[in-house]
Amino acid sequence: MDFKRFPSPDDLLILLTVARLGRFTAVADALDTTHTTVSRRILALDKQMGGRTLERTPQGWELTDLGRAAVAAAEGIEKSLSSLTTGLRDGVDIISGVVRVSTSDGFGARIATPALVRLQKKHPRLRVELLSSTRRLSQNRSGVDIEVVPGSVEAGRTETVLLTDYALRLYAGSGYAAEHEMPRTVADLAEHPFISYVDSTLQVSELALQRGALPAGSAHFQSTSVFSQVEAVRSNGGIAMIAAFMVHGQEDFVRVLPDQVEQIVQYWAAARPESMRSPAVQAVLAAFIQETRRMKGQLLPE
């Protein structure tokens, strides 16, 4: 048998990683190699396949029809190698490899992290890289397998999954509430210092509404980190619109205007179709869904 007639399995697996991450630089980082090496291996694969497997788009590298056929073969190679390497030790476990997740810091810490730790205890060969940012769904691929974003999504070529609804509510610190007369109407909020995101960096319109719909002036304290906002409220710095699950059950926080102000937002997960077919990515998504269901009483408390 002339094995030279077949595409290189290594090059096929590199193509599969490009299909999942969308950028050569992200692939080079994930595979501990260089952008030049990735480009060279894809060119070699194109020569072996007799045509282009990728085309450049504003959203990153996308597969051609020939590339999709090559990726189907690469997925078979990946599955076979995973079964071999994991099966040698403790039975077949296809939940392995690296999964990169980008999400907001609140979801990442409170929901994703406990879910991922439990998943890794069941599948010790699974590695996770968790990147924190609060933004809308990326139209230019950012080198991740899964993006979890708040608010509405325009998916494009990605596949999306609604994870959960969650509530944004007004809170003050218990000390602040004891020292100040609490607002009785929405208009009264203008008389209190407000805590919020940094306007110039906030990309999620649904989160921007948290203050745009209120009469308060410029926020007295702004931070890109929801944890800093929570601590500013805990330190009695003013009033903030915070996700209920971030402070649920904590005595340091007093709800403000509970019958007048509440906003329901969604968390969505998105991934490329090639990533969605990965057993490890599917397992991570399932873990997120399970965790959001477990936390429903905190995400949408009575």
Rank of each mutant, 00 (worst) to 15 (best):
L119E: 07
V254G: 00
R234D: 08
S142P: 05
E154Y: 10
S102M: 10
T57E: 09
I195W: 02
V256K: 07
G175T: 14
A115F: 01
L300H: 01
P279H: 09
V230T: 05
S174R: 14
P258N: 01
D32H: 14
T25Y: 07
R184V: 05
D90C: 09
D29N: 06
L45V: 04
L12T: 05
E147C: 02
A69H: 15
D11G: 08
S142I: 14
T113K: 07
R125E: 14
E55F: 15
F24D: 07
R5E: 12
L189Y: 06
A243V: 00
T36D: 15
D10R: 13
L207K: 03
M182K: 10
V226Y: 00
G76Y: 08
P193I: 08
F245I: 07
R127P: 02
P58N: 08
L131P: 06
V92T: 14
S133T: 13
W61F: 13
W268G: 00
M295H: 10
D65P: 05
R136K: 12
D90G: 09
E179S: 13
I289T: 10
L13K: 06
L300E: 13
T158F: 11
A187S: 12
S218Y: 15
G60K: 02
A244H: 02
A44H: 12
R118M: 14
I146R: 04
G91R: 12
T224P: 12
E274A: 06
H123V: 01
A44V: 09
M49I: 07
A70F: 04
F288D: 04
A213R: 11
L189H: 01
T224M: 13
L131Q: 15
S218A: 14
P9I: 09
H180R: 13
Q290G: 07
Q120V: 05
K122S: 14
S132E: 07
A72Q: 15
P124G: 01
L299E: 03
R127H: 12
Q203D: 11
Q48P: 02
A213D: 15
T134V: 09
L45T: 03
R41E: 09
Y176L: 00
D199E: 14
D199S: 11
N140F: 14
F194Y: 13
R100W: 04
P301M: 03
P215N: 04
S200F: 10
E274N: 02
S205K: 12
M182S: 09
P124N: 06
E231V: 10
D165R: 11
A70D: 01
I77D: 11
R41P: 04
L21E: 08
D145N: 10
T164L: 00
E251Q: 10
L12K: 02
A280V: 00
I195R: 03
D2F: 13
V153P: 00
L63Q: 01
Q222H: 11
Y267S: 01
E274G: 02
P258H: 03
S96T: 15
E302F: 05
F221K: 06
K4W: 12
E262K: 02
P9W: 05
A270H: 05
A187H: 13
L207S: 00
S8T: 09
V153Q: 05
A74Y: 03
R56V: 06
